[in-house]
Computed example of a mutant assay.
Amino acid sequence: MELSSHRFFSFFDPDVADELRRRATVKTIPAQSILFEEGEKSDALFLVLSGRVELCKPAGRRNYLTIAFVGEDDFFGELGVLDGSVRCARAVAVEATTLARIDRKPILSVLRNTSGKTVIDVLNRTIQNLRVTDERYVAEVVRKEKMTLVGEMANTIIHDLRNPCHGVLVACAVLHKLHSDEKTLRCCKIVREQVDRIISMVEEILEFSRGTYQLNRQTESLAALMEKFAFLNQEHLQRSGIELELRPANVWIHVDAGKLSRVLQNLVYNSAEALAGRRGRIIISARSLESEIEICVRDNGPGVPDEIRDRLFEPFVTCGKKGGTGLGLAIAKSIVEAHGGRILCESKRENGAAFHVRLPVG
C-alpha cells in the first residue's frame, strides 16, 4: 500500500498528516530481520505498508513467545513512543516487509499541539492493542503449561513403549530367519522401520516440548529419502483412496534424515486428513534454489480454513479433524527451524494447500 493511504494518518488533520508523512522514512527489509530487541530505546513508530511483523518475548534459552502479529495498514512501537519507556518486546519481520519509520520527537510534538480528539483516538488504539496483546500473552502462557504436560506424558510413554517394541523386533528377527522369501523380508523391513519410527516420534514430541532438538545430520540423497518415505507410506495412503506422486530432484542435503522424514509424514498426513472422504492426490516435489533446497507437499483438498490460517503452525491449533491434536504442523515447523530452514504455506479455499519447506544448502 502507499504511505499516503495508511490509516495512522487518518487520526490527524490533513496538514498535520502531510507533515508526518514528510518525516517518514520508507524501507523494505528482508524476512527474519530483527527490527529491535526488548530493552532497546524506543525512538520511533513503525507503520506496516506490506508484509508482516512478529512481536515476541524471550521464553527460555533461544526460544521466543509470540505475543502479536502486525500486518499491512497497522502500526507498532507506539507505547514506547508515548511514555518514553524501552521496548517491551522483540520485533522480527516474518516475511519481506515494507515499513515507514517516524521518529519519536515529531510525533510527540504533533500530539502536544493537536486536538484532544486526536490524542484520545491514538490512546484508544493503543489500549485496544494492549488488550489484544495481553489476551495473546495469557494464551501463550497456558500453551506453555500444556507443553510441559505433553513432555511429561511423552517421557512416560517412551518408558512404557520400549519393552513391547523390543518384543516386536525380536519376533520380527525370528520370522526373518524362518522365512527368507522376498515378500516376508519386505514385510519384516517395514515392521522394523515402523517400530523405530514409533519410538522416534514420541522422542520428537518430548524434544518439541522441551524446545530443543538433537540433530544427527548426515549428507543424504533427497531423492532416496523421498523414495523411502513413499515405500513406508504409499500402501496406507492408497487404502485411503489417495494417490501419492513423487517429483524428486537429484540433490544432496545435510540433514537428520529421520527427523526430515517426520516433517514429510506430518505434512502428508495433514493433507490426507484434509482429503478424507474424497479421492485425492498428494505431490511431493523438490527443487534446488539459489541458496536453498525446497521440498513442496501439495494436495488438491479443500485448502486451509480461514479461521486458523494465521495460527496454522502454532501448537494445539486444529479445525475440523476428528481426534486432531494440533501438534503435527507445529512439530514440523520446529524441526525445519532446527535445521536452519523455514516452512511456508499457500492455500486457497477448494484449491488445495501447498507447504514449502526450504532448507539451507550445505
Rank of each mutant, 00 (worst) to 15 (best):
R104W: 08
K41H: 05
G51N: 05
G84L: 13
D83K: 03
A89D: 08
R104F: 10
G77Y: 03
R62P: 01
L65A: 10
R52G: 02
F46V: 01
D83F: 14
E38K: 15
D73C: 01
L45T: 02
D83I: 12
V86S: 09
A91I: 01
D43M: 08
L35V: 09
R61W: 14
S50A: 04
R90S: 00
E38R: 14
R61I: 14
D43G: 15
F76V: 01
I107G: 11
E72M: 11
G84W: 13
T98S: 15
G80P: 00
K41Y: 11
D43V: 03
E38W: 04
E37V: 02
G39S: 12
V48T: 02
S109P: 00
R87A: 12
Y64M: 12
L99N: 00
N63L: 15
E54M: 13
L99H: 02
E78S: 05
S109A: 13
R104N: 04
K57A: 09
V53M: 09
R101N: 00
C56V: 02
R101E: 14
L45W: 06
G84N: 14
G80H: 03
V48W: 09
A68I: 04
L35N: 03
F75N: 00
P106Y: 13
F36K: 04
F69Q: 08
L49W: 05
S109N: 14
R104M: 14
L108I: 15
E72H: 08
K57N: 04
G84M: 14
D43Y: 06
I102S: 05
V94M: 13
S42G: 12
T97Y: 10
I107L: 15
S85A: 11
R61K: 15
T97A: 08
I102G: 00
T97C: 05
D73W: 12
L99A: 03
